[in-house]
Design a protein around this nucleic acid. Sequence first.
DNA 1: ATGGAATATTCTGCATACAGCATGCAGTGC
DNA 2: GCACTGCATGCTGTATGCAGAATATTCCAT
Lengths: 230, 230
Amino acid sequence: MVRMNSVNVGAGDVSSVAPLQRTALHDTLVNHLRDMIIEGNLAPGSRIHEGHLGEQLGVSRTPLREAIKYLASEGLVELVPSRGAVVKRFSPKDVEDMLTVLQSMEELAGRLACEVGSAEEIAHVRALHDEMLDKYRSGDRLNYYKLNQAIHTAIVQMAHNATLSNMHTTLQTRLKRIRFVGHEGPEKWAAAVAEHEEMIVALEQRNKPALSEALGRHLKNAWERVKDGV
Amino acid sequence: MVRMNSVNVGAGDVSSVAPLQRTALHDTLVNHLRDMIIEGNLAPGSRIHEGHLGEQLGVSRTPLREAIKYLASEGLVELVPSRGAVVKRFSPKDVEDMLTVLQSMEELAGRLACEVGSAEEIAHVRALHDEMLDKYRSGDRLNYYKLNQAIHTAIVQMAHNATLSNMHTTLQTRLKRIRFVGHEGPEKWAAAVAEHEEMIVALEQRNKPALSEALGRHLKNAWERVKDGV
DNA sequence: ATGGAATATTCTGCATACAGCATGCAGTGC
DNA sequence: GCACTGCATGCTGTATGCAGAATATTCCAT
């Protein structure tokens, strides 16, 4: 759940020289595997073959295994003793459960954001929103989707609560696999955009209950909209 | 965050022979290290020396490293590239953040428990509560504490939401290190017990808002009570 | 032909070995 | 006397090797 810190160890930092980003192999693998799972390259329910996968990626089994353990804790894979790791398969009930928690988190984040978010942060979210509207108008679904996610993430970030951010990210990641399926029709899409507009307004007014309620409703509706596609 | 399943793989399960509990070393280590961290055997901020620790526990570095990666994802340790793992140190702000999220989760759990909890489950919680009262009256702090935790866990369990349970457990574990410090005085202790009584009543009446509110207030107060001790 | 047992194979789990990076210390130049 | 460089040491990160479990295969019996 907590993303690993790629701490930059600049011994004697000279003025403003950017310290180079060091990355351990197992860390890289965590991200790579996560992407593979989300994008479906590693199908749910399928076993992860350390030997093959390692060879395919050009790494030995050790860092690969370490990455798998990390993802197991994140809930993306399941560890079966003596049989290795399996990409976790989520039942509809699992997904509903996650959404319930995610909704609760976003509602909390909304309230906190209204309290402690800075004017700059709010402006930033507004900017993202406007950009998203552009993508909506031009029918650019992929970038619409990305900005959509970015907005939700930004609002959670505004709560300035590290634990909340981490857990939200974890859930959002798990659900990405599901949500990506959601290619809703024009009218549903319009409804989603309208909800976003509501959210932004509530945020700009720092209207806690309104934002919280809008976020909750938005998520609930988002699920209703894509439900059939799962 | 998700506890590893120690799945019992009985190849050819004969009638009702208890399948032997297979446990992988890295899994065992996860639990062991977690306990060590919670109990303070591994001090916050201290580096984890793979060589020494492994020798001390009688295991090689490989499963130890795997366990560390798992705990890193859980947020109990931090991975520093090329310098290994460090037991995470939580700032007061971190603790407050965790409690904010924990509170939100318990409130949610309370609402769900009122909805979907069975009568048996409610009776079970009541039993735990009565037992806890016994410990309170006899001044048995340790068992009081354990039952206290058990009650909160049981209520969350009643929500029948796996994700919520897992995340709640993760947070509760992280905070255990902190909460254990809480040796409050008699009057504060009495207040905590009173709050619990309130919770049970609300649960038995399936009074959603009341239970949710009581849980939230209880946690907030619990924090106020032990705050100074941190 | 089919079910089952014995065997062969494959894969996981753990240990060990090796390479590279971090850190502390001594030595040298200013 | 101070700072910087270069070396030595220790630890992390990765690869490989080996033992045991799980699974696939084959062969025999019915």
